[in-house]
């Protein structure tokens, strides 16, 4: 049984005339590195936000970490790490990197419970793993986009999630930082935690089998394992085939 099992799901934004995701089925097993690619507005971010219950599933069944997503959205969010796309923290944001990383643990603690020594240790380990020890006491708004991105990745690693989802995690990072983080993601996957990554940057993917999902117009048009070096070419090919088919119709 997969850690994520989506069966014929539809999701729609309130007031939207059409479902954004239509009849999508997907199974992700523990330890898989899933890359989700496709053109803009294919529904990639919507898929991630549906998996952690931020967007309601209107039809179909969805089990995430053994829980029925349609009934236990908040419980699922406690088990799923999610690095959101396009965040910006203004220079007056009154939180240090250390505090932000610790916040990754807050959801799983539950209401009224205080973080324990174990939570502080997990946050500290995540900071070390991502290599931002020197930024730990700085306020997050004073950091560069790439440093903020690393802090948010540490925030999710500290959570020790059962599934980690990353939406454009390399958007602000140089190639050294990308390679470094890909190394970390490889370790995460090896520990059994699957990663679902939406990205347009495929250089430096770890040298492991990739579960590639290509989306277009709210549907999955390719869902197979492939070699990490073939990811970009398959996405290009699939999107081009899809576009040709659309034009010929």
């Amino acid at each position: 049984m997969g850690i994520i099992e989506l069966n014929d799901i539809y999701t729609a934004y309130e007031g939207g005339d059409k479902p954004v995701i239509r009849g999508l089925s997907l199974c992700v097993d523990p330890g898989e590195y899933v890359v989700i690619g496709g053109p803009n507005s294919a529904g990639k971010t919507t898929l991630l936000e549906s998996i952690n219950g931020l967007i309601k599933i209107t039809h179909g069944s969805a089990m995430v970490c053994g829980l029925d997503l349609r009934r236990h959205g908040n419980a699922v969010r406690k088990k799923v790490g999610y690095v959101v796309q396009n965040f910006y923290f203004d220079p007056f944001t009154p939180f240090t990197v250390e505090e932000v990383v610790l916040m990754g643990r807050y959801g799983r603690l539950g209401l009224l419970k205080r973080p324990s020594k174990e939570d502080f240790e997990a946050a500290s380990k995540a900071i070390q793993l991502v290599g931002i020890e020197d930024l730990a006491h700085k306020t997050i708004g004073t950091l560069s986009g790439g440093q903020q991105q690393k802090a948010m990745i540490a925030h999710n690693i500290a959570k020790e999630p059962e599934v980690m989802m990353l939406d454009e995690p390399f958007s602000n990072l140089d190639f050294h930082a990308r390679e470094y983080l890909q190394g970390i993601f490889k370790q995460v996957v090896r520990s059994g935690t699957p990663i679902l990554m939406v990205s347009h940057a495929f250089d430096g993917l770890p040298d492991i089998r990739i579960h590639l999902v290509v989306m277009n117009k709210g549907r999955i048009i390719y869902d197979r394992e492939c070699d990490s070096k073939d990811v970009e070419s398959i996405i290009r090919k699939e999107c081009a085939v899809n576009e040709d088919a659309r034009i010929s119709h």
Binding site: L54, R77, K78, Y82, F87, M103, R108
Partner: peptide
């Protein structure tokens, strides 16, 4: 800090 990130964390 951020309402969306808080919600995504399970708060």
């Amino acid at each position: 800090f951020n309402m969306k990130i808080a919600e995504a964390s399970g708060i």
